[in-house]
Design a protein around this nucleic acid. Structure first.
Lengths: 221, 221
DNA sequence: CGGGGGCTGTCAGCTTGCTGTCAGCGGCGC
DNA sequence: GCGCCGCTGACAGCAAGCTGACAGCCCCCG
């Protein structure tokens, strides 16, 4: 199980490597974009952990190059907290998962394991909740088997609700998760997104508990 | 569900305690390191929320001492924003999760729940008292298995009563807890809410002790 | 480099149903 | 039996949340 950790902050790199090692991976590190690209292109890794903020070639470019070259190694992207556009770009560029900084090493390890497992063929990357079904790989949504086109923002919101199904989520928590911390939005923005989502997925999927927040119910595990 | 919140800033401590209480925990607070260590070592808590910046014994030392003594209680560490080394040290010292200040109470509660659930295998966030059953995740109430729709205000009131079951709660205390401190309401408002609740949950659930206050009895743990 | 389409935040108006107030009643305690 | 505390049902005010429209923005495409 070889892992390449691409991270320019040496302390974080060392921490990540240590955590992965103790989880049973063989970890190598690399601190700049060009080298990362070269090694990812010429060596065979079971997983690559990729920080986006890199000196030299940008992490996103590195990832895109790998994908363009047909490399299908699972990539776990590390993004700055709140910079969700980075996440979206990362996913679109072909990342398999992302992890906002700062994170706990345990979480990194857990996701790394999940990615490797999924790549090995065992992973259920589809989350179901009632009539809703959410493909976390393709960022696609279906309702009762019918595909529903959703935007990136809508997907993030819906994914959070589905992930926390059977729990009422306060608007503040949703706002923070969906928009990071840069909060200059009117509270109404959230309601607008909810409304648009509801129109797409149909009634009876996203519920409101007045005074508390929103929820989806999770019949389908 | 006992929680110990160790925090030297009394206002933060009060906020944290209030948030945890309304989430169904029984919260105790403590403002200095030595006392925290002693109580964490001698009492049985389901979760400890630990601020690192403490007068007296430092939070990290407290945590290390607990771990050295074999105490495996889940610990959620509060760190100053951006103090990376604190987080790493905290994790290494045996913390189960950390939360950078400033944080939202919702996030604290969410992480607290996650920690407790993880530690307890699968603790359902459900509080029972007699025929009453109160799901703190869905903010839902059932009586003898029958779901009862309650409003936000009613839920808050009922949750407080259930949390303090087998104790007579004076109206003043209820008012203070359910509404902030803005006591511009007539005393009758509380009675109105109680009446509406009683009509919904049926008789024999919420009792009155004339001249003292209200209570619910807690047969079902 | 300019045009266009899709995404998203803001706004205003509206609906819904929660909630405080009031007046009158009932029952408990003395 | 009397008084007072607490209960109840009605009601109106109001705030939370919904919706449709619109405009700014970004990105893609020509």
């Amino acid at each position: 199980m070889r892992v390449l950790a691409v991270e320019d902050d040496h302390r974080i790199a060392a921490d990540v490597a240590a955590a992965l090692e103790s989880a049973g991976f063989h970890a190598e590190t690399c601190a700049n974009g060009e080298e990362a690209w070269f090694r990812g292109d010429t060596e065979d890794y079971d997983l690559i952990v990729l920080d986006l903020g890199l000196p030299g070639m940008d992490g996103l470019s590195v990832l895109k190059r790998w994908r363009a070259a047909g490399r299908e190694v699972p990539v776990l992207v590390l993004t700055a907290r709140g910079a969700w556009h980075e996440r979206v770009e990362g996913i679109e560029a072909g990342a398999d998962d992302y992890l906002p900084k700062p994170f706990r090493m345990e979480e990194l390890v857990a996701r790394a394991r999940a990615l490797v497992r999924r790549a090995a063929g065992h992973g259920a990357a589809v989350q179901n909740a009632g009539a809703l079904s959410l493909d976390t790989n393709r960022m696609a949504v279906t309702v009762r088997g019918v595909p529903v086109p959703v935007t990136a923002l809508e997907y993030r919101l819906l994914a959070y609700l589905v992930l926390n199904r059977d729990r009422v989520i306060p608007p503040t928590e949703l706002l923070e998760h969906v928009y990071g911390d840069d909060d200059s939005r009117e509270a109404n923005a959230l309601e607008a997104v909810i409304a648009r989502l509801r129109r797409k997925v149909g009634p009876g999927v996203i519920g409101t508990r007045r005074g508390f927040g929103y929820f989806v119910e999770g019949g389908g595990a």
